[in-house]
């Protein structure tokens, strides 16, 4: 139905010629914009209601009694449902380590939270089907668990900024919200999130549309196709400094796959973009010394590269 509407708008109302590059790019853009915003609004609202039951404060309480390993897995899973905004990364990090949550477990959470979430799940599901969505979620959680375990094993506690260990964290007695308040929170959250991510989504869809209409198929496949063993690490290296969220990167991912790039390379690119970024590094520098920050980025990037190779091999 949406496809018909997009076709009607682009080829009928705007009078573009079907099959022309500009026409096809524009059609892709209009169709994707409608579909993605419709999906986003519905799903983000539903998930926001679910999320209101998992505050970071509650997540911290659950995790503070867990050992490593079990803690890593639990932290990565809770990362999916706990609301997280990169601007809260600092208080969240301090709150976690101060309540005795091991450093590695904290990192499992920090990796999984921005990378694996409802927006990624639903958009991948809507555009590529449930298999790819589950593969992404599963491997994202695996990356978070492994990266956290490795960092835990390295015993890098002294590479956390010293002042972090001196902070005394109070215990806020937050009132439990009523269901009505939760619904209000959910609408507010949905509007706020859409307001925040729409420019990324539009830019992402625009880029996707451009690749869809203009990028010659053989060019991308020649440089980043299955035959090039360096394609996965290159995709990760390009993705790490870039900042976008799942909603913004997925249209690009869709267009790249259409052009014949292998799944593993494309998923690795998406994980690198969402899990690691320069702005996040700047924020985390407040609580991590350079050595730990670099270790963190290095380990997560390496884990993503492994996932990319694995999927290229089996899919």
């Amino acid at each position: 139905m949406l496809k018909a509407l997009a076709d009607y708008l682009v080829f009928g109302v705007f009078g573009m010629a079907p099959g022309s590059r500009l026409g096809e790019a524009l059609d892709f853009f209009v169709y994707d914009t409608m579909k993605i915003f419709l999906l986003l609004t519905t799903i983000v609202y539903v998930v926001a209601v679910i999320r209101s039951y998992f505050s970071p404060e509650r997540t911290r309480r659950i995790l503070s009694h867990k050992r490593e390993h079990v803690g890593n897995v639990l932290a990565a899973l809770l990362g999916i449902v706990t609301p997280f905004c990169s601007c809260s990364a600092v208080p969240l990090f301090i709150g976690f380590v101060e309540s005795g949550i091991p450093l590695g477990v904290t990192f499992s959470f920090l990796v999984s939270s921005p990378m694996v979430n409802e927006v990624a799940l639903i958009m991948l599901w809507g555009l590529f089907g449930w298999k790819i969505a589950l593969i992404y979620i599963g491997s994202g959680v695996a990356v978070a668990v492994v990266a956290g375990m490795v960092i835990g094993r390295l015993r890098m506690e002294r590479h956390v900024q010293d002042y972090v260990w001196e902070i005394k964290v109070g215990s806020a007695e937050l009132l439990e919200q009523t269901f009505r308040e939760k619904l209000e929170y959910a609408s507010g959250y949905t509007v706020g999130l859409l307001k925040k991510i729409w420019p990324y989504v539009i830019v992402g869809i625009g880029l996707g549309a451009f690749i869809h209409g203009y990028a010659p198929e053989d060019l991308l496949v020649r440089y980043a196709g299955r035959d090039n063993p360096l394609a996965v690490p290159m995709a990760v290296l390009i993705g790490v400094p870039l900042y976008s969220n799942a909603a913004g990167i997925i249209p690009v991912v869709q267009a790249l796959m259409e052009k014949g790039l292998p799944m593993g390379t494309v998923l690795a690119f998406m994980m690198a973009v969402t899990a690691l970024s320069l702005p996040e590094a700047v924020i985390l520098k407040n609580v991590l010394k350079t050595r730990l920050l670099c270790t963190f980025f290095g380990i997560v990037a390496a884990a993503i590269v492994v996932v990319g190779y694995m999927f290229n091999a089996i899919l």
């Binding site: 970071p56 404060e57 301090i94 964290v169 215990s171």
Partner: peptide, 13 residues
């Protein structure tokens, strides 16, 4: 100021 924020036990701003 982060230490002051943390003193209230707040983790999400």
């Amino acid at each position: 100021d982060i230490p002051t924020i943390m003193r209230y036990g707040v983790m999400s701003t």
